[in-house]
């Protein structure tokens, strides 16, 4: 007898819970709707479109969207400028990744000390990171000026041969890498600094007591402990480098056409931009973008695979 009301109250409870659950899921959907509205229209949908756009002949104003198959991909892969742009893109990444890793670690170790003096220097290093690229390119354009620029003046004071910088097909890309390092290295330095501040101090002190030199401590303790951070920075730098657009546009755009001289700074993203928005070959550009995405994916996979050999997780 006493057990009789129990199931009843249980069912009441579960239906109440169920009602609240249904109520809750309704709430959740309403709260999630705004975010997903934006993500669907401007990320999921375009991501899906990007997968197929390269296979169609699409015209902004025309109605006759026709299936083009692999035509645009074939055309891209047989286009000499595409290969040149691909090579430039990889060369740029090849400059940027080691320079970023070495530069970030060296500068972070140099300015990691806790004092007002070093805090001020950290401010200086991070400052360029928040500046607008186009606006700060102007000062650099002037520094790179072969006739009146400060960089050639420095070479002159050091009795070294002067250079054409952005006007030289050999040095234009390294010059852009120099600007990119100036602008972005502060970000990497801050990441390394925060990793350094999480280092186990007792290990360092124990090693120092045992007579390990500063270099040995750095080589045997700091560097292995930093390796996950460095791996993260390598991935981020690769992605950032392959997306680099504004600084190339600004620093080479004052010449005949951005990407010069002699296409030496024409990267894939710049070529995609020109193909789509200067010449309005949308599907052709979309095909090239898809190839670029594949390359990024491939590089990330290779780096991840390679990282197993040198990244040390605690």
């Amino acid at each position: 007898m006493t057990q009789r009301p129990l199931p009843e109250s249980l069912t009441i409870q579960t239906s109440a819970v169920r009602a609240r659950r249904r109520h809750d899921i309704g709430h959740a959907m309403v709260l999630l709707l705004p975010l997903f509205a934006f993500l669907i229209v401007f990320t999921y949908l375009p991501a899906a479109v990007s997968l197929v756009l390269g296979f169609y002949h699409y015209h902004l104003l025309g109605v006759n969207t026709t299936f083009g198959g692999l035509g645009d991909f074939k055309e891209a892969l047989t286009y000499a400028v595409f290969w040149q742009a691909l090579r430039n893109t990889l060369v740029f990444a090849l400059y940027m990744i080691p320079a970023t890793l070495v530069g970030a670690v060296a500068i972070a170790v140099l300015i990691s000390e806790k004092s007002r003096y070093y805090a001020l220097l950290r401010t200086f290093v991070l400052l360029p990171y928040i500046t607008p690229v186009i606006a700060t390119s102007i000062g650099w354009l002037w520094m790179f000026n072969p006739q009146y620029g400060i960089l050639n003046a420095m070479l002159h004071w050091l009795h070294l041969p002067q250079s054409q910088w952005l006007l030289s097909p050999q040095l234009a890309m390294p010059s852009i890498a120099l600007y990119t390092l100036w602008h972005g290295l502060g970000f990497d330095v801050v990441i390394v600094l925060s990793a350094l501040s999480n280092m186990p101090h007792h290990v360092m002190e124990a090693a120092a007591m045992d007579g390990a030199t500063a270099w040995t401590r750095f080589r045997r303790i700091t560097l292995p402990l930093l390796s996950p951070t460095l791996f993260f920075l390598a991935i981020i730098t690769t992605i950032g480098t392959l997306q680099a657009f504004s600084q190339i546009f600004a620093l080479t755009g004052t010449q005949a056409v951005a990407g010069g001289p002699e296409n030496s700074t024409l990267t894939l993203i710049l070529l995609i931009y020109q193909t789509a928005f200067d010449y309005f070959h949308f599907s052709y550009a979309a095909a090239m973008a898809l190839i670029l995405v594949m390359i990024i994916l491939g590089l990330t996979v290779i780096q991840t695979w390679f990282s197993k050999r040198w990244v040390f997780y605690q």
Partner: peptide, 27 residues
């Protein structure tokens, strides 16, 4: 499906910006 939705949000990080350039213009 809460964690599935969260994964769907994080999936956005996997979509490279250069892939969205042209489709977003079209949209």
């Amino acid at each position: 499906g809460r964690s599935a939705l969260f994964m769907l949000v994080l999936f956005v990080l996997m979509v490279p910006a250069e892939a969205l350039l042209i489709p977003n213009y079209v949209i």
